[in-house]
Design a protein around this nucleic acid. Structure first.
Lengths: 160, 160
DNA sequence: CATTTGTTTTGAGTAATTCAAAACAATTCG
DNA sequence: CGAATTGTTTTGAATTACTCAAAACAAATG
C-alpha cells in the first residue's frame, strides 16, 4: 500500500489486473490452461488459505455464478498434481487447500473452532524427517499437526 | 508359548478365556458394559492394529455373525470416548483404530501399499509438543505421520 | 480462424460415516 | 433370583465429501 494513490479510482482495478496476471502466470507456468474457474480458485485460495472445496465453491460462485462444484474439485486436483496447491486433511475435517507449497511447514488446528494456521517446522529441518526407528521405510515426508485451543477459544472458554 | 503344553487341548481355550477375562476387565474398568460385540472388536484390534471399521466388521462377523456394521461404529465410538482405543485418520484413508493409547507415539504409512506401523516420538518427548511458534495456541497434542515406501514395496519397485 | 487438446458442465454413483427409533441385553437393586 | 433400569445393538435411512463419465465447451497452437 505504499505506492498506490487511494484517490486514483482505477488503482484497485489495476492491482486486480496485475494480480490476475500473476495468477495467470503461475497457472500457465505449471503447464495448465488459464481459465476463469482456475483464476477464481487461485484468487480465493490467496485470500482464504486452508479452505475446503465447498468454501472455495462459495467464494468462486460469487464472481463466476455458472461454476459447478465438480469444477472446483477438478481445478484443485489439477493444481495439486501441478504442485500449485497443497492439500491437507486434518482428522475429522474435509480436505483443505493452500497455496503455500514447497516448504515443509506444518499446521496447528483449534479443537474448538477448527481454525487452521501454518507453523514452521518444529526444530530446524532434520527432525521432521527422522523417526526414532524408520522400520526399513524410505521416508519421504513428515506431516505434523498440532492440536490445541486457539487464543480466542481460550478466552471464550474462560468467560462463557 | 513356554509354559503351555501343546498336548493339552484345553490350553488354547483357557488362554482364550483368560484373554477374554482381561478384555472384559478393561471394558468394565472403562465404565462400559461388557458385550459380545465389544469383546470381539477389542480382540480383533489386538490381533490387527490399524484396522478400519470395515476390516473389524469382517473379523468380528466370523465369530459373531449377527453383528452389524453400525454396531462396530458404535463400539469404536464408545471405546474412543472411554480412552480404550485411539483413532487415526491418515490422509486419503478411512479411520484406523488401535489399542495402543496413552503414549504419544506416531505412525509411518507406506504410500504404495498403505501399511501402517507405529513409531516412537522422533526425539524424546519435548519436540512433539513444541511448534516453532504456537501463535497463542494452547497446544495439547502433536500428531506426526511419516510417509514413505515400506521395505517390501522398495523391493517390489526395484524388481517389478 | 480452424484445429487440437484440455477443461467444465451435467448427471449419476460411491464410500465412509452418522442418525434415529425400536428391539434387546447387561447390570443393578429389591 | 427376577424385575427394573440403563445402556447397547439392530434395522433402516440419510448425509457428507468426493469420484466418475460423457457431452458441451473454451484455451492455446499454428
Amino acid at each position: 500500500m505504499t505506492k498506490s494513490d487511494p484517490s486514483d479510482e482505477t488503482a484497485g482495478l489495476r492491482l486486480a489486473a496485475a494480480d490476475a496476471g500473476l495468477l495467470a502466470d503461475s497457472i500457465r507456468s505449471a503447464g495448465l490452461k488459464v481459465t476463469a474457474p482456475r483464476l477464481a480458485v487461485l484468487r480465493a485460495l490467496t485470500d482464504m488459505p486452508h479452505s475446503n472445496a465447498d468454501a472455495l465453491f462459495g467464494a468462486v460462485r460469487s464472481d463466476l455464478p455458472g461454476t459447478s462444484l465438480q469444477a472446483i474439485y477438478g481445478v484443485l486436483a489439477s493444481f495439486g498434481t501441478a504442485g500449485l496447491v497443497r492439500k491437507i486433511e486434518p482428522a475429522g475435517s474435509s480436505a483443505l487447500f493452500e497455496r503455500r507449497v514447497g516448504d515443509n511447514h506444518h499446521h496447528i488446528v483449534c479443537t474448538r473452532c477448527n481454525v487452521v494456521h501454518d507453523v514452521d517446522c518444529a526444530i530446524g529441518h532434520a527432525p521432521c524427517l527422522t523417526p526414532a526407528d524408520a522400520l526399513g521405510f524410505d521416508v519421504r515426508a513428515a506431516e505434523v499437526i498440532y492440536w490445541g485451543l486457539c487464543a480466542q477459544c481460550q478466552l471464550d472458554t474462560a468467560h462463557p
